[in-house]
Amino acid sequence: MADEQTTLPPDDPVRFYQVGSFAVGNRLQPLDLRTVQAAQDRPNALTCGHRACQGCGEALGARYALDAAVRATDGRLVSVNATGCLEVFSTPFPETSWRIAWLHSLFGNAPAVATGMAAGLRALGKSDVRVVAQGGDGGTVDIGFGCLSGMFERNDDVLYICYDNEAYMNTGVQRSGATPPAARTQTTQAVGPEPGNVFGQGKDVPRIAMAHEIPYVATATVADLHDLEGKVNTAMGIRGARYLHILVPCPLGWGSASKDTIAVARAATQCGLFPVFEARDGEVVASTPIRRLTPVDDYLRMQKRFAHLFAPARRDDVIDRLQAMADRNIRRYGLLEEAAR
């Protein structure tokens, strides 16, 4: 069935659509201003029946990103997937949830496999077919990091998407280089004087990617679909190495309610702990301003992995350090500046 648009009076002067550009669609909005996800015939690159947990942010983020990539390339794309939840829940042999050309690499080599694919396609004279590589934060910031850095350095024509759920979720929530300080994981238990993950470690891979001065680096979350789709679209319009880092809350690993996956991601952006920005050739060119500033408390309290900061006694010392991280992001990316966008 074709998608439909409400017939509005011929020259409708009202440019206010009740939900502006925040909701997925809106019956009053012209089709071209709606998201890919709003279309009745959206690609559904990742279809039903996958084994992701209830309310999985990674499943959602992957469909958001890949659907946008399919639209941007007219379906002319292939993808490589590192080992991790996304790969495991989508393809228990012999079933697959993917409706695009999709290959499972190894845990640590997705960027290298993608590089090879891009080179192969070029050799075949099919460089109109684009390559998207995807992996979890463990696969990206830790084990696959060498391959990724090489792919960046060579400026290979690949969009690499990292679905950041801030730990090794598929193997039971072990700490990764993207796990935030103070968070409880299987390997950073909430015990001792400094419970949870330690401060001062970990890697800020979007900034490391920027240091490679590749054409495009961006962050996004499942809480802002228009922004996420816009960034995939921009990335697919550029040749060379591109990096997109998407925050995808994990109800299981974070101890958040499955219904709150988007709410948690939104809270991460609204306190400043997860800055949403865009960089070209190593320089930040835009950031998404915070709309309703909240203290980090609101974000932390939604997740059991931070429960030890509030009970049995409130750990102001630790919360203050997390707040300081958020404040630094706000300064660094100008998240409270009206004209940041």
């Binding site: 997925v24 669609g25 809106n26 996800q37 709003a38």
Partner: peptide, 8 residues
């Protein structure tokens, strides 16, 4: 009101 959020 047809915002497509649930669908999305």
């Amino acid at each position: 009101f047809g915002c497509d959020n649930c669908f999305g």
